[in-house]
Design a protein around this nucleic acid. Structure first.
Lengths: 335, 335
DNA sequence: CCTCGATGTTGAAACGTTTTAACGGCTGAG
DNA sequence: CTCAGCCGTTAAAACGTTTCAACATCGAGG
């Protein structure tokens, strides 16, 4: 089967010219029904499969999008990717999924590759906030889960300040007055935003800023959450917070585990709020209160924005979604 | 920047022919150092990026692999994908990651698409055991985490029978004599294999077959695990198993959660073993004993096998890895 | 001085599509 | 009977590479 059958062979087999075959493929309405049938039959019979490279070379378009994801192992991003994929499929586009794994070398490499492939557009959650590297060489780019600083491209994000405020307000309203926030490093914009929201909630409630103890971590992994839990328990009881707001569900899961190990009860000894509402948050031993982000919709919208990019009247937009608090057992005082 | 610069422009700018530029790109050793420098400078200056479509059209090769994954949301598969990706990168190949999401329509669609793209090879964990659909139209295919029944292609899998045996033997050696296995549906080969292993362990220990109660679930999700937990607790105390072997970590997590909610202690009231050793297994409230599979290596090997596929002396192979038991708190009797 | 092989470079022909302008046949109006 | 207009079809020219046979150039060996 190596000598792959081309449009030419189909044409010959159907007794028409190759242009007609191309028309059947791309503008079926323009060719007479009888001829169309004959061509379709020939295609079927010969097992013809269109060669995308040739099509793309000639047409200049590629019908392929790409999503360069920050961390494919994080359930949050796989859900976003799902949204992207769905939107792409509906528009008849294929999706290149690339994993930069928080490594900017890999990210750069992938961008180069995608450019060589002449993809129609790139969605990216960049490793680096600067993201100046993202070569704007004619390929449209949309930022996902990040906000574009300038007006040079579209972005789709979630309001992290609001998210932080929601989480914190919930804890305050549950009666807590000594609260910890766990997250880091602070070089990450989102951690900063979520803290800002937390502080705003504090101010709204008329509580002093020092009601919030910020415990900075080195990353957003489960292990970091465990470490933070140990630090927390080490505090003198009089100063120990009665609630914790984690910048991330993975941290929260780690914290939860640490509490259980040390014989403390959640939420009675410590109430816990996470962020992202990943599937494993609801499935934790103590189901986790968390801030839900519209993950699939984030991806879906980003893809749609990207696809609209070469409309003549396209304007760069910055879409911002609202997060939502999901209350579960980890903050519900049991009676 | 739309009128993209081609090899031709580079040639003109460097005062050589386009064939020479192509040589610089593909066989740098064949061109004189001085000329090479000049061409490289021109490339740099003009910001030339090679057009993969044209290259592929002419060369017939594409430097792109694809991995059609069964469920992108399952941490197990994202880890396998990571291994595939690494191996592909090292060989200078890009990777198309596609998510069939256990839907054979999607799977078919993707295979069609990949064929149109003329990818060099396809890795797939098929939805359907039959997997006869996988059109063998000249593109090499390697099965991942499945065993090829016939000798028509390569496959890379893990010995599930052995895995089941390991898990079960561990429970038996811990002194349990009434054990449940939770998993399903039985139409999945892997569930059957793991059960077979469990039964073998029973036989080895001289225990009767009915020491194992099989609780069939409808799927391998967390929610199913919770349901199974409730069924388990509902059994009369005299017949209730003292240990459970779950076909999957997600099930085990659900089971764990269900136990905690019902006030039972793991491992004292019920010892639990999972399967896959996903990251969240170690991070569970009670860290989970689990059967670890060499995930990255699975992916890596599959990719390498795929790449060797068009060696002239290639023979289809079926690689089978050994799983490994990781003991954690969920089966360790506390004193 | 001629020939030869080695070394570097090149012109031109593919690769399999899409697209454009032109073509022939047919219909109906004049 | 002619001609404009329409429709379906087609020949041929792209698209940007790679590759292959051919071609200069040059130094060495005869």
């Amino acid at each position: 089967m190596r000598p792959s059958v081309g449009i030419r062979d189909v044409a010959q087999h159907a007794g028409v010219s190759n242009a007609t075959v191309s028309n059947v493929l791309n503008r079926p309405d323009v060719v007479a029904p009888a001829t169309r049938q004959r061509v379709l039959a020939a295609i079927e019979e010969l097992g013809f499969v269109r060669n995308e490279s040739a099509r793309q070379l000639r047409a200049g378009r590629s019908r392929v999008l790409a999503y360069v994801v920050l961390d494919a192992a994080n359930p949050f991003f796989t859900d976003v990717a799902r949204g992207v994929e769905d939107a792409a499929r509906e528009a008849g586009f294929a999706l290149f999924l690339c994993n930069s794994a928080s490594d900017d070398g890999r990210e750069r490499e992938y961008l180069e590759l995608l450019h060589e492939q002449r993809v129609e557009g790139i969605l990216i959650t960049p490793v680096d906030d600067e993201c100046a590297q993202i070569a704007e060489r004619g390929t449209p780019v949309v930022l996902v889960d990040r906000e574009a600083l300038d007006g040079t491209r579209c972005s789709v994000a979630v309001d992290d300040v609001l998210g932080g405020e929601l989480a914190m307000t919930h804890l305050i309203e549950s009666g807590h007055t000594r609260i910890a926030m766990i997250g880091g490093p602070l070089s990450i914009q989102q951690v900063r935003d979520r803290r800002e929201g937390a502080l705003r909630a504090l101010a709204n409630a008329g509580l002093p800023d020092d009601a919030l103890t910020f415990l900075e971590t080195k990353g957003l992994q489960v292990a970091e959450g465990r470490g933070a839990g140990e630090r927390l328990v080490g505090l003198p009881a009089s100063r120990r917070p009665t609630a914790a707001f984690c910048a991330n569900d993975l941290l929260a899961l780690g914290l939860l585990q640490s509490m259980t190990q040390q014989g403390l009860k959640v939420p009675d000894d410590l109430a816990v709020v996470g962020y992202d509402d990943i599937e494993y948050a609801a499935a934790a031993a103590v189901p986790l209160t968390s801030v839900r982000q519209p993950r699939e919709q984030l991806g879906r919208t980003a893809a749609q924005l990207l696809l609209s990019e070469n409309d003549p009247d396209h304007e760069h937009r910055h879409v911002k979604f609202q997060p939502e608090l999901v209350v579960r057992a980890s903050t519900r005082t049991q009676r």
